[in-house]
């Protein structure tokens, strides 16, 4: 390019950019191309998971004031279809807890995928609710035997939410991936400050195609 004018150099640069972009696009399509078939059939894969709540355990206040085993769950619940919240607890008291069990199925996915669960930043309106946030302990258990345990207080969830990776689901996996979320109103000296408090939060389960 010795002897070229500046405008020519710029033109060359733009051409190179276009070539590289085209190469990039070609490369992307190459992920799903198959040159062995006679008809050059190209089909995109899919990632469509199934998310079910399969159980809810915990305790509940009995009429005599004792804590009894919670048995109110009717399921399983397909959470990809249902709008019903998993945790809807009114008039809870210290030591009350609930633990939901979830399954992530492969659905019609044709690719391996990584999944995660995120508890989004909860909403709390007043001082009592803020106090309640600091007394609600969340435990996410996953992995073999639910041995991978992540624990945090709802008050610790920031603007970006609290994300817990659940690992990879391979196409060869025969069983759906399971995880649990437990919410517990812990016993503390400040329980009275949380009286009448109310908090709400969303839970997001996200699956992303797994890449090396």
């Amino acid at each position: 390019m010795i002897g070229l004018k500046s405008s020519q150099k710029i033109a060359i640069c733009v051409m190179v950019l276009c070539v590289v972009l085209a190469a990039a696009m070609m490369t992307t399509y190459a992920l799903f191309s198959d040159g062995k078939t006679a008809e050059n059939h190209i089909a995109a894969g899919s990632l469509k998971i199934e998310l079910e709540q399969t159980a809810m355990t915990g305790n509940a206040l009995a009429a005599d004031g004792t804590m009894t085993e919670y048995d109110g769950f009717v399921g399983p619940v397909d959470l990809t279809e249902s709008d019903a919240p998993v945790f809807e607890l009114e008039n809870i008291c210290p030591t009350l807890w609930r633990e939901a069990t979830f399954e992530i199925g492969k659905g019609v996915s044709t690719v391996a995928f990584d999944s995660s669960v995120t508890v989004l930043k909860p909403v709390a309106g007043d001082a009592a609710s803020e106090a309640l946030l600091s007394q609600l302990k969340v435990t996410v258990s996953s992995g073999d035997g639910f041995a991978d345990v992540t624990t945090f207080m709802l008050s610790e969830v920031g603007d970006e939410g609290k994300k817990v990776d659940l690992g990879t689901t391979l196409l060869t996996d025969s069983a759906p991936k399971q995880f649990k979320i437990k919410v517990e109103f812990v016993d503390s000296d400040d329980n009275n400050a949380a009286m009448t408090g109310s908090v709400s939060f969303d839970i997001v389960v996200l699956a992303t195609q797994s890449i090396e």
Binding site: F87, L136, T196, V199, F201, D202, V204
Partner: peptide, 10 residues
């Protein structure tokens, strides 16, 4: 999937 409106009231 997003599960919204989880509410806990003391």
């Amino acid at each position: 999937a997003t599960n919204s409106g989880n509410v806990i009231t003391a």
